[in-house]
């Protein structure tokens, strides 16, 4: 039956796209230090969104983008890819954000600014650097 064959083709194409996506996403390395844009990876409750943001990054703009992306008020944290000691640093100001961008720029393995988002916490002053073990997501 023709329709089922087409469905099969579509399934195969989607699987192929998915596979090429996971296989190619790592080797394709574009150094963020060489561009005037920063690739920002938001993650909120396991859900990721990626956007290109022109330099210099503005704290309020980025916070607005994060809040609009997920539709909830969120706090931003800078995280690294290092699986052994996963560092989570709260981004509470333009200075924090500048530091996060600088850290990313100095890390040759970082191709994006990973921003881990949490529901907004009122009344706590969590400006201290916190170090946790294990991935912040899932």
């Amino acid at each position: 039956k023709g329709k089922e064959e087409v469905i099969q083709v579509i399934t195969s194409e989607l699987v192929a796209l998915k596979e090429s996506n996971t296989r190619h996403s790592k080797p394709v390395k574009t150094s963020s230090t060489q561009t005037n844009e920063v690739r920002v990876k938001f993650e909120y409750q396991g859900e990721r969104r990626i956007l290109q943001v022109p330099r210099p990054l503005n704290y309020n703009d980025l916070l607005t983008k994060a809040r609009m992306a997920y539709g909830v008020p969120v706090d931003m944290h800078y995280t690294t890819n290092d699986v052994n000691s996963n560092i989570v640093v709260p981004i509470k100001s333009q200075t924090n954000l500048n530091q996060a961008v600088a850290l990313m720029d100095h890390n040759p393995n970082a191709k994006s600014l990973r921003v881990y988002l949490t529901p907004i916490q009122t009344g706590t002053s969590s400006t201290a650097l916190t170090v946790t073990t294990g991935a912040p997501h899932r």
Binding site: T11, S12, V15, A16, E19, S20
Partner: peptide, 17 residues
């Protein structure tokens, strides 16, 4: 490489399937 359509969904996670 990696651009040929696969005929099975074996490589995908359960969620992806």
């Amino acid at each position: 490489p990696a651009l040929r359509p696969s005929n099975s969904m074996d490589d995908l996670s359960v969620t992806a399937k």
